[in-house]
């Protein structure tokens, strides 16, 4: 296995992302358009959701559901936000299939990160649904605060 090479490869990628990040940081942060939200959401998706839901959001058969045109992704915002905040472990069918893995709570993500990642998901992988705002996440978080 080429661990060394992979290391250098990853390192240079990190460089690239750092540079990109520095680039991003130059933009005024308050100007959240759908576009910037989607861009930030993609980063959250890659770091947090991709390991289970996969790069193409196709999921893993019998284990993790897809995030492509499911009733949850396209549906009610509160339910969707709640899934990310509190995790999901229910014996339900998702577009006709069941999935055995458990999704943990992601309440360590900020309101903005959750809004961004859900906005990204709702505008990618063939999905078309409205954006989700950080204030909407904050409201749902307040309801389920223990």
């Amino acid at each position: 296995m080429n661990i060394k090479l992979t290391g250098i490869f990853l390192a240079s990628f990190i460089l690239l992302f750092n540079a990109l990040y520095a680039q991003n940081n130059k933009q005024p942060i308050r100007q959240t358009t759908t576009g910037t939200s989607i861009a930030r959401g993609k980063v959250v998706y890659t770091n947090v959701c991709l390991p289970c839901h996969m790069a193409d959001a196709g999921g893993v058969q019998n284990m993790n559901p897809p995030l492509i045109k499911t009733t949850y992704v396209l549906g009610n915002k509160t339910t969707l936000i709640k899934i990310v905040l509190r995790g999901f472990n229910e014996d339900v069918e998702i577009n006709g299939q069941t999935y055995s893995n458990t999704m943990g709570a992601h309440d360590d993500l900020t309101d903005r990160q959750i809004a961004d990642v859900l906005t990204y998901v709702r505008h990618s992988f063939g999905n078309k649904a409205s954006t989700i705002k950080a204030t909407e996440v904050a409201k749902v978080r307040a309801i389920y605060k223990k």
Binding site: N2, L5, T6, I8, F9, S12, F13, L15, L16, N18, A19, L20, A22, Q23
Partner: peptide
């Protein structure tokens, strides 16, 4: 194009090619 960005991009491209040929 930001120089740093361009440099990092080139580097990772070269690495990708190297990895691929390996």
């Amino acid at each position: 194009i930001n120089k740093k960005l361009f440099f990092a991009f080139c580097l990772s491209m070269i690495m990708a090619m190297g990895l691929l040929s390996f």
